[in-house]
Design a protein around this nucleic acid. Structure first.
Lengths: 112, 112
DNA sequence: ATAATGTTCAACTTTTTGGTTGAATAAAAT
DNA sequence: ATTTTATTCAACCAAAAAGTTGAACATTAT
């Protein structure tokens, strides 16, 4: 592998797991403790803690100590970079490609 | 893991590897053979073929037989679903959150 | 002080991932 | 017909991912 812990790779990897996406979804309704996150997912606290660690490393959440609990909050992370990457690629079939086709058609017409 | 080969998971997984993203980038300039894709990445043809297989399964590329070569073309895949997911989440900090704050503030004012 | 609660740590297991090598296959060139 | 070229297949390997269990730790409640 190439891998030099590129941020984009970290972000996409964090999002490439349905359990973690479910956690992010759940946090959209407000901050939650590890326990609260674990419960609907039917996995252990330890597994939940690990997933949260991965999301934390990707800066997609922040873990805050509150007494004996840990409260997780959403964070922006590099979501915008991931968005930008996808947008750029999606553009291949939408605007950008249309523009390219137009340009080629015009060139064609000039040549004839 | 939860995993029932969810499309979104497949898409994000396909994008979560720098080598595969490099391949997609490379294909933006036009269709290429496995060999042409492998060369700048300094990995074997077999490894390249495997990566292409993953991108193909995610419908992000199409592999076409042309004589003894295989030509790879970009495809849309479920890029739009991935985009939609990211957009929805990014909205948490931008428009949507602002709108929510405004709504709550208005409610607050009505209550007082 | 003791017990209960919430979370993490450590060790371990299984599966997946990303890569390799060498043989097999198919088409093109000699 | 033989050789070269392009790719895939199969078997294998090492490292990473996703999970488990049980002990450890800190905080809160009794």
């Amino acid at each position: 592998m190439v891998e030099y812990t590129e941020a984009l790779t970290q972000t996409f990897k964090a999002l490439a797991d349905p359990t973690r996406r479910a956690m992010l979804e759940s946090l959209r309704t407000g901050p939650k403790t590890i326990g609260a996150l674990a419960e609907p997912l039917a996995i252990s606290f330890a597994a939940t803690s690990k997933h949260i660690g991965i999301l934390e490393d990707a800066a997609l959440i922040r873990r805050e100590k509150r007494g004996r609990e840990r409260v997780c909050h959403l964070q922006r992370g590099q979501l915008e970079d991931a968005q930008a990457w996808l947008d750029r690629h999606a553009a291949f079939w939408t605007g950008a490609l249309d523009a390219l086709e137009t340009a080629l058609k015009e060139e064609d017409e000039r040549d004839e």
